[in-house]
Amino acid sequence: MTLSDGLARARAAWDRFWFGPGTARNLAAARIVLAAQALWILLSRDIPALSALPAAFWAEVPGSARWRFLVFEGRPGLEAALQAIALVALVAALLGVAARASCLLAALLLYHLAPLETLFFTPSPWAKGLTLPVLGLLTLSLSPCADALRARGHGKAGPVSGPDHGWPLRLVQLFVCQPYLFSGIAKLKAAGLGWASPENMRAWLLLANLDDQLAAFRAPGLWLADRPVLCLAMGVAALAMDLGFIVALFSRRARRVLVPAAVLFHAAILVTQNYAFLSAPLLLVFVDWGPRVSRGRTPPAGVPSTMPA
């Protein structure tokens, strides 16, 4: 095989993966899931109030971090106004009203607001639940994400499927796979396969359960920590989930197993280690909403079932 053959094959595989058709309904469902997730987090926090923390909290925040996110402390009123706009944009995105503009506005405002929650300590609010909505909503702002599942009377009916409904959803799904994959890579880079050893699993369980300030559930994790075989099983299962979840991106069949398995994985981590993975609801972007909600229906007359690239 020549280099040009290889490149042509790679190109074809790239096109097959990204530009295969997707349904308008699944893409619209991703819009709703991302907007709802971001609303859930924003309505559970008071991010603007953090702008009013005493100056001492901000003493060691570098100027580059402030400029990167345009976060300058001491402006809770301005931040409250920006959050209000973000909430309106997210509700509009949820309903499919001016969906593309709403997704873009919400993503840009979340890029500013999310780091405000943690900036006095770290510029990366990766654990706080708004990371994937920033990337996902920005991606959806480039797509016909309101061709389905939108508030009645807003916009004209779009095609029910096509490549333009496929690549944005696949990119969102890739973003949702990455926390698992990168977490697995972080484990391997730092500790190798020994990460899954019973000793290391026990140490993680003790770390997560001995400090009474950290642990809401203590008994299950400590029970598990005292059982080396179960610790090993837990370590192997965690690594397998982290490194294997990406298969859900390529295989519908694997998705049917991996998505429920991921839900169980997060539930087990919650109970044994007290870590709440706030992006877990985004697993819903892997659900195929088409057959479930439109069973027995055919596309309306005059609506094309595919759209040219």
């Binding site: 977490s183 972080a186 500790a191």
Partner: peptide, 19 residues
């Protein structure tokens, strides 16, 4: 960020705890 490294429970847990 928002291109995060997602370092959840990475590395070996320390034998010593502190808070």
């Amino acid at each position: 960020w928002p291109f995060a490294k997602w370092p959840m429970a990475g590395g070996r847990a320390d034998a010593l705890g502190s808070t």
